[in-house]
Design a protein around this nucleic acid. Sequence first.
DNA 1: GAGCTCAAAAAGTCAGACTTTTGAGTCACA
DNA 2: TGTGACTCAAAAGTCTGACTTTTTGAGCTC
Lengths: 239, 239
Amino acid sequence: MTAQARGLHARVLDSLGPAITAGEYPPGSVLRTDELAQRFEVSRSVMREVVRVLESMHLVASRRRVGVTVRPTEEWNVYDPQVIRWRLAGADRPRQLRSLTVLRSAVEPVAAGLAARHATAEQCAALTECALGMVATSRGRQLEGYLVHDIAFHRIVLDASGNEMFARLGDVVAEVLAGRTHHDVMFEDPDPAAVTLHVRVAEAVREGDAARAEALTREIAEGALRELDILAPPPAPTT
Amino acid sequence: MTAQARGLHARVLDSLGPAITAGEYPPGSVLRTDELAQRFEVSRSVMREVVRVLESMHLVASRRRVGVTVRPTEEWNVYDPQVIRWRLAGADRPRQLRSLTVLRSAVEPVAAGLAARHATAEQCAALTECALGMVATSRGRQLEGYLVHDIAFHRIVLDASGNEMFARLGDVVAEVLAGRTHHDVMFEDPDPAAVTLHVRVAEAVREGDAARAEALTREIAEGALRELDILAPPPAPTT
DNA sequence: GAGCTCAAAAAGTCAGACTTTTGAGTCACA
DNA sequence: TGTGACTCAAAAGTCTGACTTTTTGAGCTC
């Protein structure tokens, strides 16, 4: 489904990027532009542009006489949507999902609180509609329909918060939710408690009750974390 | 101070990037690669690489026969450290600082809670040291020294949380804190209450008291937001 | 063994030719 | 008058080859 003929640049990038984030070229590895150009059968111009983009993502560093070095993971621009997608498609997907879910658990409650203060009438209406849509699709294995409403719901909350940084996390949340539905265990209908919580968040936002919207969203987030703990156990305790 | 001779690519990027984020070329504007190459007196190869990087930041979109179009603000990769820096250097710096501070207020408390659970002995020690450093420099106009410890403190908390996404916000927090000290009103010594809170957070983390670490950090964040409300009033209320 | 020189390696830059896509104008036909 | 097909040119995309610059490491001297 991912477009096949978007130009050489994009194709090479979509091949090399995931390879790097997947650890196929571990940090410290040295690549050479010319060699890569040969391997991918493109001209040096194209390969140079690819390397420049990877460099801007802090995945690699390019130095004269040395080559293109893969940077340590801690330096990657892990907020780059492209990097997020590459990593979610790769092997350490579970760890990635956990990081992102924890991030959600921090951000979304605060965003919901702000949304309660700032949401427009249209946003409140859309939110309620999403919540109802979730209720309607919460039984009978209508997972795809549920997912659509779930994503829309969280996106609206983030948008309505009025904070640009929150709003831009909409795509990330969408990826996480979609990932949960599609890849991880999801043979049963969504947790009824979660559905109810969404309805109540929509209510709280509509009524402008920031504290309640925040608290309820925190419950949703905690539920998501618990769910994750069951599916993919957290990293081994240090003790 | 920002390196002067890093190659043409970086120089052009650092000239064109800020121009775009500053709104000098408003969204919808159309640029042409060749024209830009002429204007900046570089070859098309260099300009193409620059455009590719801007494209990867979602600042522009490049289409055949049309040219390079500046994208609407909502689509920019506002988490890209480079974009953050460009915008903080520009005119809408105040709005930017507010967005980032709100983000901090959501993320840091949760990070502190996790840090209380996961911090190593070394991290606890370093945290305490930073807190003491803050106390020591909190009086007598030692703003620069205070800033160093403040940045280090928050960075350690984010790192110690064990969450990669949180850890990568260290640079953002550093920018925000530095910005506050350097550009905004800061003729007086730091708020003693804030200093005390930092010391207590270090304590809570050391003792593994997640709830307290989170609550105290929330107080710090609220203080920062209040401070911002005084310096730069929030956007006009919709009512 | 410390310091110096130098050559090679790899990225960086440039210039020019060619290809591909696509928006817009044009013209014939209904 | 409107509509559809056709043409053309503009701009990005791609390739190639030559040249420049920086950097490192090997070899040499003292």
